[in-house]
Design a protein around this nucleic acid. Structure first.
Lengths: 337, 337
DNA sequence: AACTATATTGGTAACGTTGTCATTTATAAT
DNA sequence: ATTATAAATGACAACGTTACCAATATAGTT
């Protein structure tokens, strides 16, 4: 349409409605102590000339923006889209908006993204996991707004943390497999275990198995991204070693599903010949037959809570007494173990 | 750490390095024609006092931010996370950053999000689909930056469009099912067909079937979100009508997978008793046995191209001659048809 | 040496809003 | 009617940067 014309500003609204600029400003942002009369005049004028607020200008004066920096590893992933969905829903109805960056599980990249995002003076920062580079930690320490680390709570939070215990997850699965009578247990991971969360899970898993007297037999950590194909490949590698493995814990459901399909097409009876367990509790676990044994993680809920925490502090609420919030994860026993 | 101290500004950097503010500014944003000497002095000073750019201030002067508004229906979804991943990758290395909003397939919500995002003066807008409310269209028309509509190209683009032909998809599947000999064909959709893309697919599918002389027998459009469970439910409803249906096209792979699992556990032989086809080409289609017949869509690539188009225009490139870019989608014939 | 073109630096004035303080007007209390 | 108090409005400056234009230094030409 009319791209040449200058965008209307508060000045224009003020001029048209015959009030001062600052009064127009007050109306536009619902400040207190405005007469009904004035409000009407201004609103009418604003609509008439199609006035749109300029948050940039407002933020410059106000020191901080309504942007929330959200840094996650990737979107092509089982868990982070749900988290982001949760965050966005929690922000709904507020003036806060989410700015997204993806690290691809790379610390240097995380650092660069955070550095860039901080130049926007965000109202808060949400990032995943508790492990970060020194530079990242330093930047966060200098940041004055609320910070929420999601997913992981096994470690020290910089400000707030919302997550599940990876430690607990590993123990849960180890105990379950042991209780079921499996004694020759293996593990398959991916991403070269760069997400330290899966590493924490595996270590706890191994420690618990050892404690129970059935130490882990073998592990395969794929370097590639997690995928169903990877799960099949990992399992194949594990079985090729002929160690008599009777159960395998996978770093996530994708890998486990791929392995399950592999078994189904290669005459390996699950769980009779081999038991399988995954992690995350994706819908497909309960849709397939047999149902996949897994641990359901509250992904959406973690995101939602993280968003809510930021939002509350934005609204002047004190930082919560409980800075680290542990969410529940549930072992879902399917027919694969 | 030290939250009380005022953040260092360009003025501080300039003072310390003994140059003018504007020169310091030039160094910080890599402007041309800077002597090595000056650059060194300024960079050194910036590091020394821990200077961080304030993009807000810069954007106010510069009229537009380095933010790209991205509006999608949802993240808990098969397609949009991949698109967002593609966009982000395309933006990597530039100063552009992605601001995300989710509509939940609601036009009013889309409108509100866009209105809000425009107050940040974004450098570009990416949104999904070609159908929008009048208000949304009006706001976009008034927006002076590049706009890319992703996913769909069957219709008129506001500025640029990157997508696949839903029309073509419907025809492809219809022809495939017909060629395979199926004549009593049904359809299952979800979300109350609010994503008009699935509607377009179905209409083209039905039209082609009619043209071929095997008009569609029945359809079920679920109101709920798309899910595997939904696919099973939809199929169940369809079969309950006892219409002798021999093939079903599903709005997406999730639904189709759910239906496939349902068949497998209810003694329905696929494809002998019933053929199934999905849409999207998720990895699971080729992992499961039988492989699911589907259409592979270039989700990541669409996002990447959308991001690249915005980025190019940001860099001063002329708007491309071809404003609507049709991407390829491939029928992948599995064992379910 | 005089002159032109180019590279480098600086000064000033916005950008559009809102925090702070001042002023006016309305309302309540004597 | 008068004073005290609160509500409503306004003026001004400042937020930190960069666009624009001017000035100076340097290199290249004849």
């Amino acid at each position: 349409m009319d791209n040449t014309a200058r965008k209307p500003t508060l000045k224009d609204v003020a001029a048209l409605s015959g009030v001062s600029v600052i009064s127009a400003s007050r109306v536009m942002r619902d400040a207190p102590n405005i007469s009904h009369q004035l409000r009407q005049k201004v609103e009418q004028a604003a609509v008439a000339i199609g006035y749109q607020r300029n948050r940039i200008a407002g933020s410059l004066r106000g020191k901080t923006t309504d942007l929330i920096a959200v840094i996650v590893p990737s979107m092509s992933n089982d868990v982070f889209p749900n988290i982001v969905d949760g965050i966005d829903d929690a922000l709904k109805g507020s003036s806060l908006r989410l700015v997204l960056g993806m690290t691809k599980y790379d610390d240097t990249s995380e650092e660069a993204i955070l550095r860039d995002m901080l130049t926007w003076n965000p109202a808060g920062v949400i990032l995943s996991g508790l492990e970060h580079s020194d530079n990242t930690k330093e930047m966060l320490a200098d940041f004055s707004g609320p910070i929420v680390q999601v997913m992981d709570i096994d470690g020290d939070a910089i400000d707030m943390a919302v997550g599940i215990s990876m430690q607990e997850a590993g123990v849960l699965i180890a105990q379950h497999l042991f209780a079921r009578g499996y004694r020759r247990i293996g593990y398959v991971g991916a991403w070269g275990e760069r997400p330290t969360r899966s590493l924490k899970r595996r270590l706890a898993f191994e420690a618990e198995l050892a404690r129970l007297g059935a130490p882990i037999i073998a592990s395969v950590i794929l370097d590639q991204a997690s995928s169903m194909q990877g799960g099949a490949d990992g399992l194949k590698q594990l079985l090729a070693r002929n160690l008599g493995i009777d159960a395998v814990f996978f770093a996530n459901d994708d890998l486990a599903m791929g392995a399950l399909f592999y078994c189904q097409t290669h005459g390996i009876s699950v769980p009779h010949d081999l038991a399988l367990a995954g992690y995350n509790g994706l819908e497909i676990c309960h849709s397939i037959t047999p149902h996949l044994t897994t641990i359901a993680t509250p992904r959406y809920e973690m995101g939602h809570l993280a968003g809510t925490l930021i939002r509350n502090q934005r609204n002047g609420a004190a930082s919560p007494a409980q800075k680290t919030i542990r969410m529940a994860q549930n072992l879902i026993v399917g027919g694969t173990t």
